[in-house]
Every structure is written in C-alpha cells, then in structure tokens.
Amino acid sequence: MTIQATRTEAFVPVKRPFNFQRWFAATGWRHLVGVVMVVFSAFPLLYVLSASLNPQGTLTGSNELFSEIGLDAYGRLLDNPEQPFAVWFANTLIISGTTAVLSVFLGALAAYSFSRMRFTGRRTGLLTLVLVQMFPQLLAVVALFLLMSTIGDMFPAIGLNTHIGLIMVYLGGALGVNTYLMYGFFNTIPASIDEAAKIDGASHARIFFTIILRLVAPILAVVALLSFIGTTNEFVVASVLLVDPEKQTLAVGLYKLVSNPNYADWSAFSAGAVLAALPVMALFLFLQKYIVGGLTAGSVK
C-alpha cells in the first residue's frame, strides 16, 4: 500500500504559476476580439434605443446615451392619426409572414424536385436559377411597376397597390436563391431513406411531407428567418408598388417621419425601428432550436 501510494504521488502534475503572456497568446486574444465585436455590434442598437427614449426628437441630442429617458416618442408614434403605425405594423406582419411561409413551401418543393428527380432540363434549370440571382431586384423596379399596373387593369385584386401583388413579387425574387440553398441541403439527405420508403409503397408526396421535411427542418428555419427579415426591411419595391398609406409597410411608413428634413422626428423613427425589431427577435428565438439543432445527423443514424 505504501509503495502504491508513493508511485501515485510521483505522477501528480505540478501546477505551473499563471503567466499572463502565455495565456493571452493561447486564448486571451480571442476574448479580446470577442469583446470588441460585441461592442461594435451592440453600439448601434444602444444608440437607436437611446434615441427612441430621448424626448427631444433629434439625433444630436442622443449623443450621450440614455442622458434623458422618456416615452414621448412612443406616444407620438402610436397616437398620430395621420401616420397609422399600427396599420403599417399589421401590414408588415401579414406580408412578411405570408412571404416567409410560401417561400419555404415553394422553395422546398422545387429543391426536392431538383434533388431527387431526373428530368430533361434539370441542369439548365439550376444554372438559370443561379444566373438570375446575379441581377438585383432593384434593376427590375420599372418593369415590375409596369407589369403590376397592367395586371391590375385586368385583375385588380393582384395588381398595383395590393398586398397580394407585392407578395407575389417577393416570392418571385426569393424563389431562386431559396431553391438553390435548399437544393444543397437536400443533397445531404441520403437517398437510401427515399428508397426504403418507396419499397414500403410511399409516393413522392408522402416521402416529401412525412420524411424529408422533418429532416431538413434546420434549412427551412433559416430560409423562413431570412425571408422574413428581408421582407420586413425591404423599402424600394414596397414604396413603388404600395401607394395607399393604409396599405404601406413599416419601412415605407417610417420613412415619412424623416423624409422632410425640417420636420424630421428621429425619436419617433427610432421608436418605430425598435418596435419593428421585436417580431424579428421573437421569430429568431423561436427558430433557434431548429437552426442549431442538427436534426439531420441524428436521423441518418
């Protein structure tokens, strides 16, 4: 027992004294970079929040963060009958939510077809999707306005100054990149899962809705989140296609608060930006478990 204890004590490692230079060279610089990035990312958010709580209504008075705190800007934003913030907020949620759901559904259908089926023009279709995404949607604003105006003459429900028409434009602009993004993720799902389901008599529709969609939940969550954020922040197309103030989105409506330099209410604008960020934050927190879950790895095993 004595010999065994002596041998055991001989292998006890000696703890070296703390060396700041060695620690900083190994891992300390990573903490420093992380702190700098957090401050760099959080400062604009804190500045906008401080400006929304500043009763003066100017950005120059918000240089000192949280020097004055009040809810006057939120009151002016919500109680102004000429600027229906609640209507803009509801319009944004409807348009962004519908666009996100339909973008995920249509993109998943197209990605499944390109990934699992073999048909004439498959490769050409994929290359066309990539080439179309090289041109920004901003280049087609004039064409979109003329197209929606002509469609509105024949079908007023989906033409100019309608939410359905704007949703269709958003879907057309995002379908290509969403399809290509999902296509790469669909290819990571082993084809043996489809073959096993086909042996059991499952059709393509059953395989897609009951098996594949569950395995690709992370990419569906990412596409839905990106689509929702992009649609919420979009300004140019919405300002061109939506003319009626009662049908405009938050991005277009809030611009009116600062469009006139002589009467710009930056505090109310900042308050609207803070409120507009709440749905995005809520959706991100809700989809976070799907984004970082990694459901595909467990399903294959």
Rank of each mutant, 00 (worst) to 15 (best):
T179E: 00
V38H: 06
N161G: 03
P44D: 12
S50D: 03
L166W: 08
L283H: 10
F66E: 04
F235T: 13
G294K: 04
S192W: 12
L257C: 13
F186T: 02
S62K: 10
T27L: 07
A51I: 04
V236L: 15
L147I: 09
A5H: 03
G125V: 07
A297Q: 08
V36D: 04
V36R: 06
D200C: 09
L220V: 07
P261L: 14
V280Y: 11
V240M: 08
F269K: 00
N178M: 01
T232W: 15
M117F: 15
E68S: 11
L65E: 04
T6V: 07
D153N: 14
K15M: 13
L171P: 03
L129T: 06
V258Q: 07
I193G: 06
L146Y: 07
F40G: 02
F186K: 03
K256M: 09
G107Y: 13
E82L: 05
L242C: 02
A86G: 07
N91D: 04
T98V: 15
L32P: 00
M148Y: 14
L32M: 12
G61P: 02
A196C: 01
G293P: 09
L181G: 08
A157L: 11
L106A: 13
S50T: 06
Y290P: 05
I212S: 10
F85D: 00
S299F: 15
L32K: 10
A197M: 13
A100V: 08
Y183D: 00
T210A: 06
P44A: 12
F24I: 13
